[in-house]
Amino acid sequence: MITRMVPRLLKHICLRFVTNLFPAPHMPPSLTDALAEPAALTPPVPVGQRFRGRLNYDRAKCIGCRLCLRVCPANATDYIPEEKKILIHNDRCCFCAQCTEICPVKCLTMSGDCMISSYARKESVVTDTGPVQTDVKA
């Protein structure tokens, strides 16, 4: 039966392919080996201007006021009383950017980094990323 869908479907055959085959076009024989070579992977789609990714934390600038702990909805920030500094658990963070807004010295910023999954728990803890980088937004 010819319905209105048929011409649509025929049109779609000649359309451009839009899916980004991330991280690889086909399932590699060994996923572990493939992931060990990031250069061979298909890069992800670039993130938008206002994308909020992993937090950057300028540890030296932090004054230990604990305001970021007060607003964090996910309790992703921990205070280290001995050092009067914080650390951020990325795996708990919901990327709301509330802490970057309240921080009085602006030592917390959102980066555009979205590839933050990891098998190791320790890798998703941010302790210091150095002075504020250029890829950050307010």
């Binding site: 869908m5 649509r8 938008g48 994308f51 919901c94 990327f95 709301c96 950017a97």
Partner: peptide, 29 residues
């Protein structure tokens, strides 16, 4: 199913706009 995929394809555009405006596709904050 073909109409389902068409609907999903249409929806991408508004998701892109939401991402441009808020930084996220869902849970805009």
């Amino acid at each position: 199913d073909s109409a389902f995929h068409l609907g999903m394809q249409l929806r991408e555009r508004v998701m892109d706009i939401l991402e441009l405006l808020t930084g996220n596709r869902v849970n805009y904050g």
